[in-house]
Design a protein around this nucleic acid. Sequence first.
RNA 1: GGCGGUAUCGUCUAGGGGACUAGGACGCGGCCCUCUCAAGGCUGUAACACGGGUUCGAAUCCCGUUACCGCUACCA
Length: 486
Amino acid sequence: MTFPRLRFAPSPTGYLHVGGARTALFNWLYARKHGGQFLLRVEDTDKARSTDESTRAIFEGLRWLGLHWDEDVVFQAANVSRHRADVERMLESGHAYRCFCSAFELDARRKQAEAAEGAFKYDRRCDQLDAAEVARRVAAGDPHVVRFRVPDGATAWTDLVHGTISFPNKDIEDFVVLRSDATPIYNMAVVSDDVAMRITLVMRGDDHISNTPKQIMLYRALGADLPEFAHLPMIHGADGKKLSKRHGATAVADWQHEGILPQTMVNFLALLGWSPGGEFEEVMSIDELVASFDADGLRKTAAVFDVKKLEWMNGQHLVRMPLADLAPLAGRTIAAAGLATEQELAARGDWYLRLLDLLRVRARTVDDIARQARPFLVQAVTYDEAAAAKAWKDPADARAIVAAAREALVAAPTWDAASLEETLKAVGEARGLATGKLFGPMRVALTGEANSPGMFDVLTLLGRDVAISRLTAAENELARRAEGGA
RNA sequence: GGCGGUAUCGUCUAGGGGACUAGGACGCGGCCCUCUCAAGGCUGUAACACGGGUUCGAAUCCCGUUACCGCUACCA
């Protein structure tokens, strides 16, 4: 039994995109499921577009998702001497030849051919050059590229997601493998590295399907064993187009900053293009994903990234995760919002955990939690005007209600839910008010918001002193409003 | 243009010749619960791209059309 070796091979030209993250995830899941290795290779041969910043962002994104790689990261640019050596071998074995046609003249021929009949394919004229002539021009330092000599026939493979795919070789021109500056072309570098890394399964986006026959020919020319291939569908935006900046947040870091949990991202991405089959529970932990993952469940069709569903799923994970794990996470966001320091929150111990437990059920992101925590952490509340307009429609009336509640609460024997309930029920009955009519004005007085956890939770969370003083403050505010309005 | 890939509710998907009156989830609507908002429970809405075959029978197999995507570079 040999264990599979897979790799994720991003080019460091931007942040880790959700599409790339999904590709990395499937490679990782497959490797974990089958006890194999998941490797990381940075394809940094395009020096003009590659940046260290982007390399770091990719590492960070993968780490955030928990997609840890085995073995050291491979930087493709460090391997160009091997890429060249492989090209040299193909030159010697006759699988490749030198081409002295200039890019400029090729371009002209291509334009001409396209105007006339449509398709242009390199006509192999340099393959006719005799050895002495080639040697002379090489010695003279004539700029040239190296082209692969595409054989006759067809190239086919059994794709893990698409089944058999076959390309007639006649439709593939003698493609360049080494540029005139002696740097390798993408397909050459990929194959050389995948062979060197002993990759057994190449799993990547289906935009690489057309590259695959070329790469297979290269493996054969190099005398290397073929890996298996699996081509994953793309991820699209809501308009059905390939995901891009226009669609808003497309970098995994963007979602991290919006309060999406890494386990949600993994769960959501896993279900974009893969399904365990049959009826199944969609909210899954990473361990459950690893356990049920298999290539049979890979879909062929492009999927649309549905933010609504992502957010719903995050709400699910928020509620299911251990409170102890959520506490530091939410703490960071709360601290970033300037509501309290992480130390202060930690010092509040169980009170803080109880607050989180009450808020997370009505939140979809960690940021929602921080927003809702505000009234419980700041000194004085600010009244949301929309909430006030509704619950304090008649300021004089609202003031009377708040005052009555305050008076009763001041006299409450103990400050616990049961006792508070009894106290407030009496207030309602005395004034002939349903609890809704009573709690509405109180809620705005206590939290400044139209919505909050249940009244008794709010009161006990706030504590007697804060609650009473907020009610008093609201009475003053309402008195002001009653005057101003009258 | 050539070559390749894909096509089930708005979205993610189940299903792979008869069990399909096409199932689940998100979203949206309704009801229940209820002090608000959520969560939860129940429920409604909504799909086999089109046309030909094959077959007793097609969402499922075959062919074509259409649409979308990718490749067709000395980009990756």
